[in-house]
């Protein structure tokens, strides 16, 4: 077990280094790092001094090493546009994104799971046909259109819910939360639904497909032939076997929720890291883009690690060495 985890951690570090390299290349070679600091009038000598101060005259390998070192201590430089430390900008906006992501992930997991199981166990029921048709429509609707549709219905026509922002927020140390005020709760409903719909559809379809596959297996047939109760076959045998492949995808989907927040945050003018990223892409604010890339990569790597360990816990074939025999 420890060997397995250590290997995975080692691999994760490699992935992070690769991502850091990409981020470094982007920062170093896309756009001119001096451009942001120097104005047109800055003299050539001053430029040379600045290059030296920033370490841009040293070999690229050293520059990368120092980039990684600074990255480890949370320093990703100064935003070209805002002239603020990138790390602080991200930290300020992180709570908004995380609250939104967690709310929609919970929605997607619970509803997607329940609907998926229903569709697999009752493949011919009218409700299943209805759900499957709606889900296909759901996959075809771009997230931003769903958001606009919800705004139109609940904000413009009905006037029930706010169409933008986080509502009132409360400061808890460095964390700002919108979940302690009524306006905060009202504000998160529409964005959370918007963000969760796509993942929900995906999870539902995945769980349905995997479970149908499992239900076709011989051990399910054998369980039926032994006269086991239906609930035990469906939820004991079939569901657990379904979870093995689903865990991986579900884990990554949770990560995607944070990354997908880019679009939802734009639609609802949600003050999170996603909209920060969009602004940086629009204005080619390279340090912010690079830092966001590293941040998202770190998130995925951590989720991947957790998923792998979960996987390991669920499936005894990975956990326990195979015995001898002719198989």
């Amino acid at each position: 077990m420890t060997g397995f985890v250590l290997r995975r951690i080692f691999q994760s570090v490699l992935v992070m280094l690769a991502v850091a390299l990409i981020a470094f290349i982007v920062i170093r070679f896309v756009g001119d790092p001096l451009e942001s600091l120097a104005s047109q009038e800055t003299r050539l000598e001053d430029r040379a001094v600045m290059m030296q101060r920033l370490g841009l005259d040293r070999p690229v390998v050293f520059q990368f090493a120092s980039f990684v070192r600074r990255g480890l201590s949370g320093d990703f430089g100064i935003s070209y546009k805002q002239q603020e430390p990138v790390t602080r900008m991200i930290a300020e906006r992180l709570p908004a994104t995380l609250e939104l992501a967690l709310a929609s992930a919970a929605l997607a997991l619970v509803l997607g799971g329940l609907l998926g199981i229903h569709c697999a166990l009752k493949p011919e029921s009218p409700l299943t046909h209805f759900i499957m048709t709606v889900s296909l429509v759901g996959v075809s609707l771009p997230t931003f259109l769903i958001g606009i549709g919800l705004i139109y219905l609940f904000s413009v026509e009905l006037g029930w819910l706010p169409s933008f922002g986080r509502g009132e927020t409360v400061k808890l140390g460095w964390w700002t939360t919108g979940l302690l005020t009524l306006s905060g709760w009202r504000s998160i409903i529409l964005p959370a639904i918007t963000l969760s719909l796509f993942q929900m559809t995906l999870l539902m379809r995945l769980i349905r497909a995997e479970m149908l596959e499992v239900l076709r297996q011989d051990y399910i047939r054998f369980a039926r032939a032994r006269g086991l109760p239906q609930s035990s076959i469906h939820f004991g045998h079939a569901l657990k076997n379904t979870l093995v492949p689903v865990i991986t995808v579900a884990g990554l989907q949770l990560g995607s929720v944070i990354a997908f927040a880019v679009v939802t945050e734009t639609v609802f003018q949600w003050p999170g890291v996603g909209s920060l990223f969009i602004n940086s892409v629009q204005s080619v604010d390279v340090p912010v883009m690079a830092a966001y890339l590293v941040f998202i990569a770190l998130l995925f790597v951590v989720i991947n690690l957790i998923v792998d360990i979960l996987y390991y816990a669920v499936d005894p074939r990975l956990r326990i060495a195979r015995g001898g025999g002719e198989t």
Binding site: Q217, D218, Y219, F222, A223, N241, D315, R317
Partner: peptide, 10 residues
Amino acid sequence: DPLVSLNPLY
């Protein structure tokens, strides 16, 4: 086929 008749997780 005994290889696929038993639930691998239990």
